[in-house]
Design a protein around this nucleic acid. Structure first.
Lengths: 338, 338
DNA sequence: ATGAAAGCGCTAACAC
DNA sequence: GTGTTAGCGCTTTCAT
């Protein structure tokens, strides 16, 4: 591999000059520039990123830390993050934590000493101390799972509670009487907010008590299992608001096996709006998050923070939207088009 | 951030000594070692990866290049790759190419100058010249999409053609007469092999001609669309072998809309065995690839090549397995257990 | 406008 | 056993 020295020698200039033309810095005579460019081309020279990193203390690399790679929601978002990153000359490390603190710390440790320029953090197990550590290492952070005050980070969220309300209200509107909720992990903010949205709508009903709420781990399997438990516990149940689409898909499957017809006997609404939600049989009504937009915004904000050394924090709360599909179209025949 | 110099000063030793204890190299007196360890702990010192990389010409980082992050098949495999990597102190760059050569080249360029130690390459658009370039940069490669002779790389594949045969034969066995095929991208090896497996079984039938074969891009949407075309073209069709599970899911949806009952009027078989294949309504019969095993093997092989500087090449061809589910259980009532 | 040289944080001879 | 020192490939003062 050619080095900057080889280029300098071939062009008959100093390495400083080569560095200047590479980085477009300082003034250089047009002729020398051409000389250098020719040498670069001839040697197929590419600057060594590692050496640049060591010198610059930055790497043009950011990390996207996500809790699960098996929920399509994150890959869909990652695509947006990557698009923006790539358009700006950055690379993205995808780091999957599986919601395990040890994995998270492993990444954070490495990232900190790798001159990663920034991190998009989607991990509810992050602690204040972790953020402080990152700050010391001068890595910018954008959070996606919640707002951490005084963390010096920007955050991007959606209106989870409102979404939960919309979903549940929709079930009421289509005629459901007994509506259960399948939620995500206990101590996770988004998940909890969605549950509160649900409670906002049905919490005061006479039939309601906490046994109408099940909690899983945002997976299809989990949705399937909890739905089955709910069937047993509440045979009169005729609607389910699931905390995400995977849970909803699981519930759909459980209903099918249980012999409950969706939507007429059991209407189902999910949350997220992953591609798959519109592709199941029947397609699932869901609260659509602006998935691409979130990723795009996060990366844009991160770049902004990195390149302008911004320290002030912003907190976005994006809108969600009810997308009505077959899984909640009770006693009607609709044509599906999706 | 503390550097090796700070540690040396605090411990009252030279930086060489510190380096030795960090890397467990050479002999050191027990007491000095303890001194150094204490200093390290006190300063919360972590070696700077970039500097190590520059010095060692390696980074303990590997890249997993994949053609699509939206097909769960790859995330499922990535999980295995990560597991093995992490267990061995390596990090994994996930690089999504979307099957676009420009993206691939972008990654390859950077990776080459970043002292990435190895690459797991799943990208049928790779050319010989790309591999040669990597070899020059001394990065080990394991390929997953095909065998490239004289590339100096190891490859891991599954028995695609046999799988295609198994799937199609199964459809014949359950009583299908007119079986169509929805394949993946035209010039992709795996995809083409699966198609040949299909042709091995039905190619000689009197009704068969190439109009029974549709080709898409391995997505649900594509499966949906092609299935619809096939319905129009061949109303008598009673079985579909889809080149992957996403295509099968799309076909399932199309069948539902078209009013064809699965499996009795139209049996469907997929390929891959992603989680989702068992979670649809009805669950989909598929040719199960050893997904985790593939990722695990690829990473293990890669590490082997990296750490022992192996140049010899191996070519694995792993077995696949027919997993029978509801989507092909014609005129029977089965209990579903997934 | 260009070059010499120091330094980024670490490893690995080579000396003692 | 431990320290000194020369790189790894680049950027960036500071001279000229």
């Amino acid at each position: 591999m050619a080095t900057i020295r080889d280029v300098a020698k071939k062009a008959g200039v100093s390495i400083a000059t080569v560095s200047r033309v590479i980085n477009n810095k300082g003034k250089i005579k047009k002729e020398t520039e051409e000389l250098v460019q020719a040498a670069i081309k001839e040697l197929a020279y590419t600057p060594n990123r590692v050496a640049q990193g060591l010198s610059n203390r930055r790497s043009y690399t950011v990390a996207f830390i996500l809790p699960s790679i098996n929920n399509p929601f994150f890959p869909e978002m990652a695509r947006a993050v990557e698009d923006v990153a790539q358009a700006n000359g950055y690379q993205v490390f995808l780091c999957n934590t599986d919601d395990k603190r040890e994995k998270l710390l492993g990444y954070l440790d490495n990232l900190g000493t790798q001159y990663v320029d920034g991190i998009i953090l989607n991990s509810h197990i992050t602690k204040h101390e972790d953020l402080e550590r990152l700050q010391k290492n001068n890595v910018s952070v954008v959070m996606m799972d919640r707002v951490l005050e005084n963390s010096g980070t920007t955050s991007i969220m959606v209106k989870n509670r409102e979404g939960g309300r919309m979903a549940t209200q929709h079930l009421v509107d289509v005629g459901c009487e007994y509506i259960a909720h399948i939620g995500g992990i206990e101590d996770e903010y988004n998940s909890t907010q969605r549950m509160w949205g649900y409670r906002d709508v049905v919490g005061h009903k006479s039939w309601f008590d906490s046994s109408w709420i099940g909690r899983g781990d945002f997976s299809v399997r989990s949705g399937y299992q909890i739905a089955k438990e709910l069937f047993t516990r509440h045979p009169q149940m005729d609607g389910i608001f699931a905390g995400n689409d995977l849970l909803a898909i699981g519930a759909l499957k459980a209903a099918h096996e249980w012999g409950k017809q969706t939507p007429n006997e059991l209407a189902i609404v999910g949350f997220d709006g992953i591609d798959m939600s519109g592709l199941t049989v029947p397609p699932i009504t869901t609260i659509q998050q602006p998935i691409y937009r979130i990723g795009e915004l996060a990366m844009t904000e991160l770049l902004h923070r990195i390149e302008n050394n911004v320290k002030t924090t912003k907190h976005y709360e994006l809108d969600v939207e009810l997308v009505i599909r077959e899984s909640s179209m009770k006693s009607n025949k609709w044509s599906v088009n999706n």
